[in-house]
Design a protein around this nucleic acid. Structure first.
Lengths: 203, 203
DNA sequence: TGGTTTTACTGAACACTGTTCATTATATTT
DNA sequence: AAATATAATGAACAGTGTTCAGTAAAACCA
């Protein structure tokens, strides 16, 4: 094993250490409340070191962003085995909302935080997001093959569906569920998606 | 006219001046990019002055927040004259999405930005938001009176509907519509809500 | 009117932020 | 062992929200 490859490996380990520390602090304090100094302190290095491995705070953001989509896809993957596509679609909705609730800050990172797109047009940064969306569109096509959603365009339908589950998640993440002071947010989401599923069933 | 009342008036004028300046800078640079110093500079006063009229930046946020709901309600008000409640509901959806598109930053302020609820439980701060939601629920009840949405709970249904239009608006505001690289966001929203309306029709 | 009190405003200061870079310490190569 | 290349530091810069002692102006009272 050459020195060069060991150096390479150490470089990657350092990146991992930074990402691990960043994730920890992000999930503890939330993205905007986390400073580069906080991350440096967590990993017991100086702030300057981080900038030897990442261009800026946004690059750390993007890495964790992709990781979020990987995790979400992992949760979706097992649903591949649900035979009926419409049942699979409903299960996906449940998994999506569950993911948002259980990973509030990560969900925030993935879908709500202002995407810091500095160098306009970097579609490669959104690979994982694209794949998740493709997954949804495929399920919708499968549904159509079984007679659902006649005369509907998968593109627009997928957007409407995504909007609904994202809307619920976003309202939950940003505490807008408090607009219903007498209803528990979990109850609100469960029964809200139930009503939505009934709509889908009849479409 | 006593001096006391003039003072009172001047105090209110100063608050207005601060809010006007804050609104201007917020809409120009976005909320998080706006500093108290920016606002002070815009109104040609020192930063400290602002703290004589507002407890902190969040209090300015809340005032503009309420203003946003007032403006949205103004746009909704004329729909009172649409006789058929289901048509009224669909019109509300259109107005909502249009409001979000035309007032991106204000919408952000109202529904997306992390609500800075420091002293937990201040429901009076959300008066206007509550009223807007009541407006929606009333329309849904009217729809039910005309035979729509049988066996549906207005609370949960209103949440599902709100989630959908909010979801679209939020994805739009945060540039997640780019997940559909070949479709114009406006087109996406128009056809997305069209698909959703068809669902509502059949429910 | 003259002096005193109240009020309004200022701007320097504090503790924080993301980021840069000359300097130092360590490791590798010659 | 000396020269070179790499890695890490932490002080410094320009920005942030917020506070507060000090000043200047206006209002009050004699």
């Amino acid at each position: 094993m050459t020195i060069a490859t060991r150096k390479q490996r150490e470089k990657e380990e350092m990146r991992s250490l930074i990402l691990d520390s960043a994730r920890k602090v992000f999930l503890e304090k939330g993205y905007s409340q986390t400073s580069v100094r906080n991350i440096a302190e967590e990993m017991e290095y100086s702030p300057g070191t981080i900038y030897l491995y990442f261009k800026d705070k946004d690059e750390i953001f993007h890495e964790l962003h992709e990781e979020g989509f990987r995790r979400m896809l992992e949760k979706m993957q097992p649903l591949e085995h649900v035979p009926d596509p419409f049942e699979r679609l409903k299960a996906m909705g449940r998994v999506y909302l569950e993911f948002a609730r259980n990973n509030k800050d990560l969900y925030d990172l993935m879908f709500i935080i202002q995407a810091p797109i500095k160098h306009e047009e970097e579609p490669e940064k959104w690979q994982m997001g694209q794949r998740t969306l493709e997954y949804l569109k495929n399920v919708l096509s499968d549904c159509q093959a079984k007679g659902h959603f006649k005369n509907q365009d998968v593109e627009y339908l997928s957007f409407a569906i995504w909007s609904t589950v994202h809307g619920m998640s976003a309202l939950y993440c940003r505490d807008r569920c408090k607009a219903y002071p007498n209803i528990d947010p979990l109850d609100l989401m469960n029964n809200g998606i139930k009503a939505f599923n009934e709509m889908l069933e009849k479409l």
